[in-house]
Write a protein that binds this DNA or RNA. Structure first.
Length: 526
DNA sequence: GGCCGAAGGACCC
DNA sequence: CACCAGGGTCCTTCGGTA
């Protein structure tokens, strides 16, 4: 159906069965779209996308504009400029081409491309409509967001530089300055800065990295070491914000507001400098940091002067808007490659252009996406994200493993048992139980399937988890005998604490599962 | 219509 | 030689339904 009334406009995007409506479009639409592009892009797309493209070079490989962007080098992160991106992508492409992984990425890419195409056509239609009502709705929404602007907090995002590599380098000085990566030939978790100069980066398979950088050294990951180093770093965080929020071993958000009010002689900049010095002197590792009014901005800022640098974004609205609107759409966290492609197809390359096209995006995107876009380009944090203190409980826990592709059902069931076992062990450690079991299957062609089952009771024992997971697997094997898998996973969600209340003497302790007291909803109505 | 469960993706580290 | 991870969160769609 069409994007009909105004309230329904928030509904959603350009989904499948809109085909009929879209086919109505005639050639005049193309004219509209071209105009639109002309308006927004004074420079040609090719020039912008590939400044390093040499004239006459063959561009059969992926680049930012011809699709398959998910295969291409992700140079979003710092330390990746000045690379011959075209050459790197040609290598990545030639190594990946024809692999099952590649074919699956191409499939996903094609689906995204179709979605985007529908949006582009819809945009053409929108351009010829009178959108004054929508415009005023959008203004109201933005006014509401503006009212949420909070400039009273000092949030800092601290990000350790090439963390795993830095730890290895510290412990083995012979690695200093060398091109090396932590990981194996299958997958890298971190690349040293010297390796990044070759286009090597995290989440890249090692054998491709080896093509980009033949002298690349591999270092086996040692998580114990990284956890220990992380603990040291966190001790420093602790001193500045006891409620700091760790996002992973190597990064965290801190709210410096309380600290600063207790130390009036300090400024955000001096505090963060000192904190980074302390991290360096106490761990031998360098950190980068971003200081801003909210975590979203701080995150972008921490990337600004990486490695071993910091960036302070002034806490006034004008500075924030100027900063954020100059950003390419890919910079803010949450906007990844797919969304970038989507926006590019609409002629939108910077956050300012998101802002300029907000009425169209309002019609083209879901309410959640639109809301997020506006928060980003207005430099408003996501509402409650900066209220630290009580960290949100985790929602799920899972284990998964990749193996040589197999269609051996017995081996699959054994893997399910093994995963369920380790899952139950970890759940016991965490003292949690859950009521939903999901198995994840990745076929040898890389397509992922999930089967889940929500139960009327909470599980935590290995045997119960195995039973449900096996049931899900067997269902699938029944429908799809001979399926060849390369990965299996088991996840538990619908979590709750499994701690036994000692005061309630009911002998549920020995039972392997507990009943969930479900009460029909209507009993609650007054 | 809204909520729920199930399935599939995008994204992040 | 090796041939694209594993642990999460959140969003969207769809079908069933009380």
């Amino acid at each position: 159906m069409e994007c009909d009334d105004v309230t329904g406009g928030l509904e959603f995007d350009v989904e499948s069965d809109d085909d009929d409506a879209i086919n109505v479009q005639e050639s005049d639409v193309l004219g509209d779209i071209s105009d639109f592009w002309d308006d927004l892009a004074e420079t040609s797309d090719d020039q912008r996308a590939n400044p390093h493209t040499k004239q006459g070079s063959v561009t059969e490989g992926p680049n930012a504009e011809n699709g398959l962007s998910r295969i291409a080098l992700d140079d979003n992160k710092a330390g990746m400029d000045g690379l011959d991106k075209q050459k790197i992508n040609d290598i990545i492409f030639s190594v990946s081409k024809g692999s099952r992984f590649y074919e699956n990425e191409a499939r996903k890419d094609e689906m995204a491309r179709k979605r985007t195409e529908r949006a582009v056509q819809e945009l053409g239609r929108l351009k010829s409509l009178d959108l004054t009502t929508e415009r005023s709705i959008v203004e109201q929404l933005c006014t509401k967001l503006e009212a949420q602007r909070d400039l009273s907090k000092v949030i800092v995002h601290v990000d350790m530089d090439a963390f795993y590599c830095a730890v290895e380098e510290r412990d083995d000085p012979s690695l200093k300055g060398k091109a090396f990566a932590v990981g194996g030939t299958a997958m890298l978790t971190t690349a040293s800065y010297a390796a990044r100069a070759f286009g090597v980066r995290a989440a890249m398979p090692g054998y491709i990295a080896l093509r980009l950088c033949p002298e690349l050294k591999f270092v086996r990951p040692d998580h114990r070491k990284y956890s220990a180093a992380s603990e040291e770093v966190r001790k420093v965080f602790q001193r500045y914000d006891p409620n700091f929020r760790p996002m992973s071993l190597d990064e965290a958000y801190l709210d410096l507001t309380p600290y600063l009010s207790m130390h009036p002689e300090d400024t955000p900049i001096t505090v963060v400098s000192r904190m980074r010095e302390e991290i360096l002197s106490e761990t031998g590792l360098t950190a980068s940091a971003g200081i801003a009014a909210n975590s979203l901005l701080a995150k972008v800022c921490s990337d600004r002067n990486k490695p071993n640098g910091q960036y302070f974004l002034p806490f006034d609205r004008e500075s924030i808007l100027e900063f954020v609107q100059a950003l390419p759409v890919r910079k803010p966290p949450g906007i990844g490659k797919v969304t970038e492609q989507f926006l590019h197809a609409l002629g939108i390359r910077t956050c300012k252009e998101i802002w300029d096209n907000r009425v169209y995006l309002y019609k083209l995107c879901s309410a959640a996406s639109f809301d997020y876009f506006m928060r980003v380009v207005m430099g408003i944090g996501s509402s409650h994200e900066d209220r630290f203190g009580s960290g949100p409980d985790r929602k799920s826990i899972s284990h998964e493993t990749t193996f040589y592709p197999t269609s051996d059902a017995t081996a699959m069931r054994a893997t399910i048992r093994r995963l369920s076992h380790s899952l139950s062990v970890e759940m016991a450690e965490e003292k949690i139980k859950g009521n939903t079991v999901t198995i994840k299957l990745k076929r040898s062609d890389f397509r992922v399937f999930q089967k889940s089952k929500k139960l009327m009771r909470y599980l935590k024992m290995e045997d119960d988890i195995v039973a449900v997971a096996l049931e899900l697997l067997n269902d699938e094997l029944q429908v799809n005998p001979g399926i060849e898998l390369r990965l299996m996973g088991v996840r538990m969600s619908g979590l709750a604490s499994s701690e036994v209340d000692k005061n309630v003497g009911i002998a549920k302790v020995s039972e392997s599962s507990e009943y969930l007291g479900l009460i029909p909803k209507h009993l609650f109505s007054i």
